[in-house]
Design a protein around this nucleic acid. Structure first.
Lengths: 208, 208
DNA sequence: TCAGATTTGGCACTAAGTGACATAGCGGTC
DNA sequence: GACCGCTATGTCACTTAGTGCCAAATCTGA
């Protein structure tokens, strides 16, 4: 599918936009500057994105999705705590993925002061929530259209969002440092607490 | 405080903007049209709002806040189910408040097709979540800065959001009709399920 | 009624975003 | 390799979103 090529292009732009938004702020960053940094014409940028603030959505989207994709591989017989401790460390494989994670985290730490960033972040979270629905449905053995599944996905995503925001602001605006296990603990605890379906504990084995 | 005067002005504009967004779509509605409908100069509209899509935020904000304010008056010795059944019906008092509710609900039913509306809706929900934090903190006897309180507020707000979206799309795009008790039941059930702190049941009486 | 402060409008301007068409690149086919 | 159709991109003129600046209006209090 060549949809992914477009996604790659959008992501490339998003990385540059994120850099500029972080360095100069959203207001002081022009569409021209983003286009120039990405090595594209302005026109192409506006073909990729409906607005300036949407330029960073793919970055949040991809980082959010990396986490959600990690959950997709979550074996039924493993608890959330065990799974995250075992796998979260290897979620960001390449240098690029790590850079994306840092870039996203930095921007998240600016959510309070830059409404445009919050907007993009929330939009991307909504997409991640959609992806999460399918995973939770599979794990709970329910239909993705089921209201309870949607509710659980929304609550779990909200939990991730709160932890994210908390950790990112603590890191980038208060200079705190987090060791890896602590992040796993907090994410797992929040997801467990917020989950409205019994998905966090090992599940009774089931055919299929 | 004259901050509320500005809020009234913003809300007045938002009502017109919502009408136009609903009738013509966001794209086909110009800033000029909004200003004209509100009887203001374009300049004043852009002083009130940072972007066109933000023009409807106050409508979502006020309807969301009306619900949150209802929860503020929630007595400690009453369960969420009882409280909502007893009070939700009287939440929207004036004709204007009812019109606001309908206008917001109609727009929510367009969330799938109009990203700009989703953006505004999510931003307003984030504000409502902030307001909810204080209420939950009070009810749970915890500090508003407490992580668990923020988590509970986020999860509860997510629950309200999912119910909202579900009911509004069912109403306006599938023509379903909801009786009042059903709405109460669904909201109460979702909030109870998603709440991560024991706030939904009557609380042991406590001085103060 | 006057002074001072705040709010609004008018207008010129910059920047965001679109439409229409030309061009470049990229398989496939002969 | 030349030809073809297809899609992605660029160019440029254009509309609309959004800001800066100053003047007019409106509000406030003595």
């Amino acid at each position: 599918m060549d949809q992914s090529k477009i996604e790659q292009g959008r992501l490339a732009v998003a990385r540059h936009a994120a850099e500029l938004f972080w360095r100069d702020g959203v207001e002081k960053t022009s569409g021209d500057a983003i286009a120039a940094a990405a090595g594209l014409s302005k026109r192409t940028v506006w073909r990729y994105f409906r607005s300036k603030e949407a330029c960073i959505e793919p970055l949040f989207h991809v980082t959010g999705l990396r986490f959600v994709e990690l959950l997709r591989a979550w074996p039924r017989e493993v608890s959330i705590e065990t799974y995250l401790h075992e796998t979260l460390g290897s979620m960001l494989q390449t240098e690029q993925e790590i850079r994306d994670g840092v870039a996203a985290a930095r921007l998240i730490s600016r959510l309070k002061t830059e409404p445009a960033i919050r907007c993009a972040y929330l939009m991307a979270s909504a997409q991640a929530e959609d992806a999460l629905v399918a995973i939770i449905a599979a794990r709970a053995g329910l239909n993705p259209d089921d209201f309870d599944v949607k509710l659980c996905a929304a609550a779990a995503m909200a939990a991730v969002r709160v932890v994210d925001e908390d950790i990112c602001t603590a890191t980038f605006t208060h200079g705190r440092r987090f060791e890896h296990p602590e992040v796993c603990d907090r994410l797992a605890a929040a997801i467990r607490t917020a989950s409205t379906l019994p998905i966090c504990d090992p599940l009774a084995s089931q055919a299929g």
